[in-house]
Design a protein around this nucleic acid. Structure first.
Lengths: 198, 198
DNA sequence: TCGCAAAGTTGTCAATGACAACAATGATGG
DNA sequence: CCATCATTGTTGTCATTGACAACTTTGCGA
């Protein structure tokens, strides 16, 4: 039985990652409150105190999970970026990626933006949020260079865009994918052209 | 000692409300995980099982708290509405109220939109969200009637506006009030006039 | 190879949420 | 007026949990 090296001796070798995986699964289908260090330990085939070697706290594990979420969200946003395209295409692509992440990792997104992280970790999380902001900054600056986006502090504009995407992603939970994509188009259109008649 | 009728006999008379108040205080300064039914009971001067008479579950208490949050948010949005004003003024007012709520009740807002409520309660919460949406629908419809807002499904437009406000409110936690108000203006301006040059 | 740090183990403790069985209270209707 | 009975609170108990302390195994590097 080489399956997943189920029978290791003493040293697990990969416990930290296994704990994070298990925590994310529990988070996704039973919520944050259902995450139990002891249960994760049992599932990993390890003693109840073993998780303590990798996470000083339950909160430390949640923080690590949040950080991992930010890294994956950033990767998804980076991956989706057609750099050469026009501003509308780029924004639509970003919006789809963000909302897509929210739809498939809703509970994780909640955790990522939860206002309860440890102070030591919150600096790293702030950096992670800032990285996300930077990813939307690029299309804005490019758009301004091309004359497709109005003048103004690009940081503020990017913040506006991220706010909108994040709000949309947060609210897009119960609706169907079709409905979400419809609203998503409208949101990007509004961002670019506004609500007032031209 | 008549202070707060500290010595009632057997029947507390107001336990449910006291528990909710205590839970909200704990939520605000120590986070959701720190809410303990037993601790709330102790603070209320009541036995450890008494909360069970009012909330079948810890989750039931959290759900009730979320619902109360939605009611207060709705009240704040209703209260702020200068009905006669132009669209920009109304939207700015709504945005200030929403972000103001987020700044003073951040953890509660997280709880309100947390993806983990009981199915029985989630219907009521969905209604609460829908009520909020309705409040932004009014200015949109009015704006359309006045020719200040473009044609189009007012529900979709309102959804867009709420998304933006909610995203802004969610992200406006660490920043200073001045910064928030600056971004808030930019967001409303963008909503109305768009990011592309005219 | 010796020593030591990393990683895992057992044992324990107080706190918690949930539940069951019981008691006090006060409202209602006969 | 008072018997009944639902409401609300109480005590007792249990399994689970997070945290910690003390100890062991492992493997790496000086």
């Amino acid at each position: 039985m080489l399956v997943g090296m189920a029978d290791r001796s003493y040293h697990h070798g990969d416990l930290r990652a296994v704990l994070l995986d298990g925590a994310e699964r529990t988070l996704a289908d039973r919520g944050t409150a259902a995450i139990s260090l002891r249960e994760l330990a049992r599932e990993a085939g390890v003693s109840h105190a073993a998780p303590g070697r990798h996470f000083k706290d339950k909160q430390a594990l949640l923080d690590a999970l949040a950080l991992s979420g930010f890294e994956r969200l950033r990767a998804a946003l980076e991956r989706c970026g057609p750099e050469g395209a026009d501003t509308e295409t780029r924004l639509l692509s970003l919006a789809r990626a963000y909302v897509g992440f929210a739809l498939s990792h809703g509970a994780l997104l909640d955790l990522m933006y939860a206002r309860k992280h440890e102070s030591a970790m919150s600096a790293r999380l702030a950096t992670a949020v800032s990285d996300i902001l930077d990813l939307t900054l690029a299309p804005i600056v490019q758009g301004q260079a091309d004359g497709e986006i109005i003048e103004g502090d690009p940081f503020t504009i990017a913040y506006t865009v991220v706010s909108t995407l994040h709000g949309l992603a947060t609210l897009s939970t119960d609706d169907t994918v079709e409905r979400v994509d419809e609203v998503l188009h409208e949101v990007v259109r509004t961002l670019l052209h506004g609500l007032t008649p031209r």
